[in-house]
Nucleic acid binder design. Structure first.
Lengths: 254, 254
DNA sequence: GTAGTTCTGGTTGACAAGACCATAACTTAC
DNA sequence: GTAAGTTATGGTCTTGTCAACCAGAACTAC
């Protein structure tokens, strides 16, 4: 047992020159849409511990960089993307035994990217792949360390930020149809949204999406070609689309 | 010396046994209501650097404790409160030069307490006091390190969590009147709220506040004695009180 | 007693949002 | 070519929510 929950030698007041040393890593939960489902980029660990298991990419923070810079670097190393449309801090994870080797505090970041270009397997990673988040949430894909919890936290964060800040455009391309945008909401929330009402809500907030005047090519199944939009500036407050609240007054057939 | 801000020998791929060492501190932004205004508990630093300046309390994380435990410990050491009504992680701060002595990554926590009991000046702190947050936000009270930014982030967090999760009961006593609860919202948001509408909104959410049947003593200015409530369980989703949206700015588009 | 203050319940009007329908513009199948 | 299917987009209707406002109740101070 390596746990020393109560170390009697630990003084109540620390001497600044004699602090406990920690390793600090910055890990990034990289989310993207693929095939109408939310996916997370995972790497298969090539080294112990948890060798052979899936994990979210990351690495040690360098002393001369900020946390944001470290996250940006990790994202670029892993995907080749150098400018994420969304990259925010998610939280810190520092349980004593989360890494069996040593004391590690991890700062987790959340990244949303439009499309994964090259998926690079780094030095510690034997393989990299996009895994549906549902597989992770259901526990069908086990992750190393406490990374499953981190992914759960990341998805929950996306769910509320989608409603609160409307970060949906981070998941689609530079131009997109409203159906594509709606697919992001539906994938993250797991709810069907009415196309007409969605359109009205999104367009009501001026400056959120901007029509380009051009039209998309209809899909192979036909249909009226949709107008193409591009992302406007982001919100100041409130969001155009709300998470559907079950109306108790709806008809109760069965 | 342990500070090596730029080590050219740092390889791109780290060896796990040779990671850069960081000090990890856990600092707590302790907020409370006093005299109808939001206050933050600050300590005056007794040691260099920033000796004599105000700072938020905190200390080094111990290897055997979790981050949450560390925050709880710091809060107890500083205030004597052992069970905060609200204690959540706020974010991580790790800019390279935020501490001139060495590489320090700080995990900031946000605590809301009902009343400050004993304010203890610790080993590093010569003095402790409650300062109105407005003084910090306006820059009238300068803080050590990047603590001013941390306080700003904490207040912003409270503003949205008040709406999203209804954490207002964390700031009032075990029993309270609706006017007291309303004062929390008004202090944090800086907006006047209609008493009747506030009451309706709060009571609409069942289980959020529970009437005790007793009545408070009217204040010295008279008035009908208000009913006393106690906090129920917290929310699952949505909040009973929404941030007032100015209706006139809503019809700009078109 | 009257005046002032606070709490509490009621009403109303504007607006937001979901359910649903209708039509337009494309596809493929025949 | 026509018919059928699919998607986008605009419309209507109904319901619920919320802020503004009003009125009365219950206290204190004088």
């Amino acid at each position: 047992m390596t746990t020393k929950t109560n170390d009697p030698r630990m003084p109540a007041n620390y001497d600044p020159s004699e602090f406990p040393a920690f390793a600090v890593t910055v890990d990034v939960v990289i989310l993207t849409m693929s095939n109408k489902r939310l996916h997370v980029l995972l790497v298969r660990r090539g080294v112990a511990p948890f060798e052979g298991m899936w994990a979210i990419p990351g690495g040690f923070k360098r002393p001369a960089e900020t946390l944001d810079e470290a996250a940006k670097r990790e994202l670029a190393e892993e995907t080749g993307v150098d400018s994420a449309s969304l990259l925010t801090q998610l939280g810190a994870y520092g349980d004593p035994d989360r890494d069996p080797r040593m004391n590690v505090v991890t700062i987790a970041y959340l990244a949303a990217i439009r499309r994964v270009g090259v998926v690079v397997a780094g030095a510690d990673a034997a393989e990299a792949a996009l895994i549906p988040v549902s597989e992770v949430l259901k526990g069908k894909t086990e992750l190393a360390f406490d990374h499953a919890q981190i992914v759960r936290d990341a998805v929950e964060r996306v769910r509320v930020d989608l409603e609160l800040r409307g970060i949906a455009t981070a998941f689609v391309g530079p131009t997109f149809t409203l159906a594509e945008l709606r697919a992001v909401y539906e994938a993250v929330w797991g709810e069907q949204l009415d196309g007409a009402n969605f359109r009205r809500s999104v367009l009501a907030e001026s400056g959120w999406v901007i029509p380009t005047g051009r039209r998309a090519r209809p899909g192979s199944t036909g249909g009226k070609p949709a107008e193409l939009y591009r992302a406007g500036r982001m919100w100041k407050k409130g969001a155009p689309v709300r998470y559907p609240q079950p109306n108790d007054t709806r008809k109760e057939h069965e």
